[in-house]
Computed example of a mutant assay.
Amino acid sequence: MTFDDEWSQLRAAAADKQSTRMRLNHADSGGAASTSSRGDLVVNQDDLGRVGHEAYMLHGRLKKAGDITRGAKDDGSTTKAATVLSSHHFTIGDALTTTAMVWNDQLKTLLQACAHISNHLDYTKKSHTNEDAKIAASMARRDGSAMPVSEISKYYK
């Protein structure tokens, strides 16, 4: 194969890859006419706030309702039952203790995930607000008036 042939094949493969990448930039409408020509994900600040608040509320409910094994002052019914059964040499006492430990570990993991989601969305909301303010400040003239479209289009060339 000559250099020119190989070069042509590589260019054609790159063009195919580029067109595939461009096609994947939006959702396929399934052959029907699309109602929206935009392929961008749009998230409003209110959406982030609502999801973050729901994660926070879920965390509170899980913390209260999920702590069924310990009870007040580590003497919940599950812990008491496991201790009493183990003291009478029932093997189910150890199994119940293991079950309670696994339950608590899983509950802690789920609580951490809810807290992480809530905190991350709060941070994202604040960060996007700050970034929007920075962009607005950088896109304004020194006197505070809006930058004309002809000037903005220079940034995209």
Rank of each mutant, 00 (worst) to 15 (best):
A72I: 12
G60C: 10
R61K: 14
N104K: 08
S19K: 13
H88E: 10
G66R: 06
E151F: 06
A115P: 00
K73F: 09
H53W: 08
K73P: 00
S153I: 09
A113G: 11
A133R: 05
I117R: 05
F3W: 10
A140T: 10
T2Q: 02
G71S: 11
R50P: 01
A146V: 10
H116M: 09
D74W: 01
K108C: 04
A55N: 07
H26Q: 14
D105Q: 11
E131A: 08
R21Y: 07
K108D: 15
R23E: 08
A115G: 08
H59A: 08
V43N: 08
E151G: 05
P148K: 09
L107Y: 03
N25F: 10
T79D: 09
V149R: 06
H88A: 12
A115D: 11
A100H: 12
Q9F: 01
T91H: 05
S127E: 14
K157W: 03
A15C: 05
R23C: 04
A65Q: 15
D122W: 04
T83N: 05
Q9E: 12
T98L: 08
A140Q: 06
A95N: 15
V51P: 01
E131K: 05
K157V: 11
K154N: 11
S118E: 10
R142I: 06
M147C: 09
G76H: 01
M22G: 04
L62K: 03
N119P: 00
D67R: 11
L111T: 04
A95T: 15
G60M: 06
M22Y: 01
